[in-house]
């Protein structure tokens, strides 16, 4: 389990690195998606305390249901954040015809002055 947890944290790191190094906003959003998936994955790994589903089985060999109940909430929240930021990216690209974050920042700064 420790190795699996470590690997899922590595996926988290990949998502963060994508968000820092890539300039394209859509790629940054994909990086955010990878981060959220990594969190989901680590929750699933920790909840895997047995091979059986949590309904009508002994507490010893079943899957822990509480992390799964929590992760459903955070999947929904993550979806909402992704969808809303995609709307903002679409709006910005419709005004400036680019999704490159550096170009966008430059043009927004120039428009203000």
């Amino acid at each position: 389990m420790t190795l699996d947890l470590f690997l899922s944290l590595a996926v988290f790191g990949i998502g963060i690195i994508t968000m820092v190094l890539k300039n394209d906003l859509v790629v940054k959003l994909i990086g955010l998606g990878i981060v959220e998936t990594a969190v989901t994955l680590s929750f699933v790994i920790v909840s895997h305390t047995g091979p059986l589903p949590p309904i009508l089985t002994l507490p010893i060999e079943r899957v822990d249901p509480l992390p799964q109940a929590m992760i459903i909430t955070s999947i929904v929240v993550g979806f909402a954040v992704l969808a809303l930021s995609l709307v903002f990216v679409v709006y910005l690209s419709s005004v400036y015809h680019t999704t490159d974050s550096r170009k966008l920042q430059k043009r927004i700064k120039r428009d203000e002055h």
Partner: peptide, 10 residues
Amino acid sequence: ALKYMFLSAI
């Protein structure tokens, strides 16, 4: 708002 969202989501 977009900057806020990215940083806060992480």
